[in-house]
């Protein structure tokens, strides 16, 4: 039982990070029906942006978590947002009326370009980089369940980020415009909404969340590398589909479910740990076969 509870907690922590990335996928899909394949790279670029600033900090500052953390997060968010907005402007906007496969291939191309840029331009970028832990090492215990402080920190950051997102989407004018565009871009335009600006904002918001996830991932695993975005992105997309693509609550729920499934399968299925990364795809295939609209999704358009 303790083992189960322990794994459950681990799953929630992993799922919180998947959820953060999945939000970016789901929002972009909801607005322009694009599977933004490069979103996983935005997550990776964010983590590297944070690391770059931390490396540049003087030692006294770098050791102080209360000062360094906000700086890292700010840097990560800025790098990721800038990259995402640039990608949207340069690569996706000119293709908005072209066939889906073109946009998808472009997204893959962008993803390659971003990966390779980090590999080439980040100092020694082709090797994994170690990432600072910053939050106090060690655990605290509830009963027999041991929870590292880092994990608690991850869950708290993810929770507040998602809360802020809800507030942004439901309580601000821009958020309202976002929902309008996702329902019907043409009518939204007729109502005087600047659709291009809203799309850009959507990419930026997704990038902010992905950057947070990138830094959190780095803090948890103490290591980042230039191709970590591929698998993370694929899993986050699975989470988004699982929850119902286009649905914000669904993305968070899907992320948590996926994280928990992955951890439980690794623990309880024989051979499970060797196939750590397979479970996500099995979940994906099962969901797509039996409930392609996801857990919370409504009927979405199906043809590419």
């Amino acid at each position: 039982m303790e083992q189960f509870a322990q794994q459950f907690v681990n799953g929630v922590v992993l799922g919180a990070m998947y959820g953060l990335i999945a939000l970016g996928y789901t929002m972009v899909y909801g607005i322009i029906q694009l599977w933004n394949f490069a979103h996983g790279e935005i997550f990776m670029v964010g983590a590297f942006g944070g690391l770059a600033v931390w490396t540049a900090l003087p030692e006294s500052l770098a050791e102080n978590a209360f000062l360094a953390l906000p700086l890292i997060f700010t840097a990560a968010v800025f790098t990721a947002t800038f990259t995402a907005v640039l990608v949207e402007r340069v690569a996706y906007r000119p293709l908005r009326s072209s066939p889906r496969i073109t946009a998808l291939i472009t997204a893959i191309g962008v993803s390659i370009v971003l990966q390779e840029s980090v590999r080439l331009f980040y100092p020694d970028g082709k090797r994994p980089q170690s990432f600072p832990g910053l939050v106090a090492e060690g655990n605290f215990s509830i009963g027999d369940v041991r929870i590292p402080w880092v994990s608690l920190f991850i869950v708290i950051v993810a929770f507040f980020a998602m809360l802020l997102l809800q507030a942004f989407v439901h309580a601000t004018k821009t958020g309202k415009a976002m929902r309008a565009v996702s329902q019907d871009p043409d009518t939204a335009r007729l109502m005087g909404i600047d659709v291009n600006r809203i799309i850009m904002v959507t990419f930026a918001v997704g990038a902010i969340l992905a950057a947070l996830a990138g830094v959190l991932q780095g803090m948890k695993f103490r290591q980042i590398d230039f191709h970590m975005g591929f698998l993370a992105g694929l899993k986050a997309f699975t989470a988004a589909v699982l929850g119902g693509i286009g649905n914000i609550t669904g993305a968070v729920l899907g992320g948590l479910l996926l994280g928990i499934t992955e951890v439980m399968a690794t623990q309880y299925i024989p051979q499970g740990s060797a196939w750590k990364d397979v479970w996500a795809f099995i979940v994906l295939i099962v969901v797509l076969v039996f409930r392609p609209t996801g857990l919370l999704g409504e009927d979405v358009s199906v043809r590419a």
Partner: peptide
């Protein structure tokens, strides 16, 4: 099973298949 899906769903499902192939083989 898989060819019953359309569009993006088919695309992502098959991508999952390709990556899963590597992971499954790496576990045997």
């Amino acid at each position: 099973v898989i060819l019953g899906m359309r569009g993006h769903y088919f695309a992502v499902c098959t991508l999952g298949l390709g990556v899963a192939g590597a992971e499954i083989a790496a576990g045997i």
